[in-house]
Amino acid sequence: MEKKNLFGVCPYVTSQKVLTGKWSIYIMYLLAKGPIRFNELQRQMPEEMTHTTLSRQLKTLEEEGLINRIEYAQIPPKVEYSLSEIGEKFKIVLDALEIWGNEYIECMKSKKK
């Protein structure tokens, strides 16, 4: 039986493939607040996030068209990241994830009691 390639066909498979990476959703959340420079973004990430990992994740999100990377021609170099037009549309998903995530946290807390 031949496996189907559902990328670009199924919205769930497409979304999952585009948002691969452990930190992609959290990065999108931080960028939803507005443009941010690399170092500030790294400061807001969890401690285990390395410079290389963040750089790789940002490059992937940029390649997928979800974020913009703007490099300013100045010294010292300045690079800002922001959500792209399609990335901006992800804000409603982030809002829904926040609601569900908070409900799940409450559910976990109630099970511990």
Rank of each mutant, 00 (worst) to 15 (best):
S84G: 08
E98A: 11
Q16T: 14
K109S: 05
K4V: 13
S15E: 15
I67D: 01
K17N: 15
F38R: 04
V18Y: 05
E48G: 06
T50W: 06
N39G: 10
F38M: 05
K112A: 13
T60W: 10
L31M: 07
Q42F: 04
M1I: 04
Q42M: 11
E62Y: 06
I99M: 09
R43C: 05
M108Y: 00
L30E: 09
Q44H: 08
R37E: 14
T14Y: 13
L94Q: 02
N39A: 12
T60F: 07
I70V: 14
F90L: 11
M28W: 02
E2K: 14
K22R: 15
S110I: 12
K112V: 06
W23P: 02
I25S: 04
L41N: 03
L31C: 05
I86G: 01
W100G: 00
L30W: 04
V18I: 15
D95Y: 01
C10I: 12
D95I: 02
Q57A: 13
Q74W: 00
T53S: 12
L41W: 03
N102E: 10
T60V: 08
I105F: 02
F7C: 09
E103V: 09
I75E: 09
L58F: 02
F38D: 04
M108K: 13
E71Q: 07
I105R: 01
G101H: 07
K33I: 08
P77C: 03
G65P: 03
L97P: 01
Q44W: 01
C107Q: 11
R56T: 07
E80F: 08
R56D: 11
E98W: 00
N68L: 13
S84H: 08
T53R: 07
G65M: 07
Q44M: 10
F7P: 02
W23V: 02
I25H: 05
S15K: 14
L83P: 01
Q44P: 01
A96F: 03
Y29T: 09
Q57N: 14
